[in-house]
């Protein structure tokens, strides 16, 4: 009998960074996106197999906001970790992302988090350059480049987060 561990994980990010389309194909979904516009969150599930252990990530995909003042922080409660999604073609989504990160750390403390730079498939439309990303890595962020179109790194991102959650 495989060992199963369940974890609540939040997905945060500014408006239209592509969180939902990013994960759509890789998670089990049951609820339509309309829940994000109505109650501001949609719950999906992703099971990651780490050896003999299965980590069941219950994903709370929070509706994208343009500032933390609009963020429903209640939904963060009890999360073991989170994914921060940033649109690499729009610099201000990084600022919003950082604000959300600070807010999340205030509420949850130092929990594992992954910074995802999305829309990596859009060549040439880079608002956020490699130097900025390297600086963030030096600041201690674990980062990854993702794309909903190519599916690049999505499963990797979940696996990495799951690993960090169980160690």
């Amino acid at each position: 009998m495989a060992e199963i561990v369940k974890k609540k994980v939040c997905m945060l990010g500014a408006f239209a960074v592509g969180k939902t389309s990013l994960i759509r194909r890789y998670v089990e979904n049951m609820f339509s996106e309309k829940y994000q516009t109505t109650i501001g969150v949609k719950v999906d599930k992703k099971t990651v197999q780490l050896g003999s252990k299965a980590v069941e990530l219950v994903l709370w995909d929070l509706a994208g906001k343009n500032g933390i003042s609009e963020m429903r922080t209640t939904y963060l409660r009890g999360a073991s970790g989170y994914l921060l999604v940033v649109d690499k073609t729009r610099l201000n989504t990084l600022e919003v992302g950082m604000d959300m990160h600070k807010m999340a750390q205030e509420i949850l403390g130092k929990v594992p988090c992954l910074l995802l730079f999305n829309k990596w498939d859009l060549e040439g439309k880079w608002d956020i350059d490699d130097a900025a990303i390297e600086k963030l890595q030096r600041d201690g962020f674990e980062t990854m480049k993702t794309s909903a179109k190519t599916g690049q790194s999505v499963n990797d991102a979940f696996e990495l987060l799951a690993r960090k959650l169980v160690e």
Partner: peptide, 19 residues
């Protein structure tokens, strides 16, 4: 279909109403 997700949504709804 998936009771784990339902459980999460139920909690989210409660949070929503509270908020």
């Amino acid at each position: 279909k998936d009771v784990d997700m339902v459980s999460g949504m139920l909690t989210a709804i409660q949070d929503f109403v509270h908020d």
